[in-house]
């Protein structure tokens, strides 16, 4: 291990990590919104949209992010839709994540017995009030474990961004290995930076999961 090498590479890695974080979290934020909307459309079987969303979910859950990115980044410009690499990264992650979040959130919705809805209705609450005050809070808390798993999964998936020439951690590592062949230092830094990005999420996730889990109310 050569500490001088590590020190001189550090700024490059920091920059790359920030890019990974930026695109990763933006993509995750959008994927949560998208997944939320899609889950509600699927669960409440909103006509037409429900079919379209179903196709979208199956398509993006059954193809790799790398291929999705290639299609979005290199394929779409050929039919006149050109998007820049960063936007493409956010979009790809949001589309992939949206499909996963939707399924997780939907199973949260499905885990709530229909009689909960009935008991709210019997109190004179409207459908919207019932969904808002009774169903959603329970569905969200019961899908927290799956959400956390999805977030970790999506952050890991950001490692393919280098394929569309985003200068993220993988790109930087590969580039530096190619240029100066300080392989061990480069790989060690790669691992450490990913640990810095992922470890806190994984730890905070498991704490939140324990606290928020629906079964945990009143413990």
């Amino acid at each position: 291990m050569n500490w001088e090498v590590i020190q001189s590479y550090l700024p490059l890695y920091e920059k790359a990590a920030l890019l990974t974080l930026k695109i990763g979290w933006l993509g995750i934020a959008f994927s949560i919104i998208l997944g939320f909307v899609c889950a509600i459309i699927r669960h409440y079987k909103i006509p037409v949209l429900h079919r379209i969303v179903g196709i979208y979910i199956e398509l993006f859950r059954n193809t790799p992010l790398l291929i999705q990115l290639f299609f979005l980044y290199f394929g779409l410009p050929k039919i006149g839709i050109a998007i820049d690499a960063e936007f493409c990264g956010v979009l790809g992650l949001a589309l992939l994540g949206g499909a996963y979040m939707a399924e997780s959130f939907r199973s949260g919705l499905e885990s709530i017995e229909p009689i909960q809805t009935e008991s709210a209705l019997s109190l004179g609450m409207s459908r919207t009030q019932t969904i808002w005050h009774v169903i959603l809070p329970q569905a969200i808390s019961s899908s927290v474990p799956a959400f956390v798993a999805n977030i970790v999964f999506l952050l890991k998936e950001t490692s393919v961004f280098s394929a569309i020439s985003l200068m993220d951690l993988m790109f930087t590592a590969k580039d530096l290995i190619g240029l100066y062949s300080k392989t061990i230092e480069c790989l060690a830094m790669l691992v450490i930076f990913y640990l810095i990005i992922l470890l806190p999420v994984s730890i905070v996730g498991s704490i939140v999961e324990k606290k928020l889990r629906f079964a945990g109310f009143g413990e």
Partner: peptide, 10 residues
């Protein structure tokens, strides 16, 4: 009032 109470657990 239901057999299974159906209080809101949250």
């Amino acid at each position: 009032v239901f057999q299974s109470y159906e209080l809101f657990p949250h």
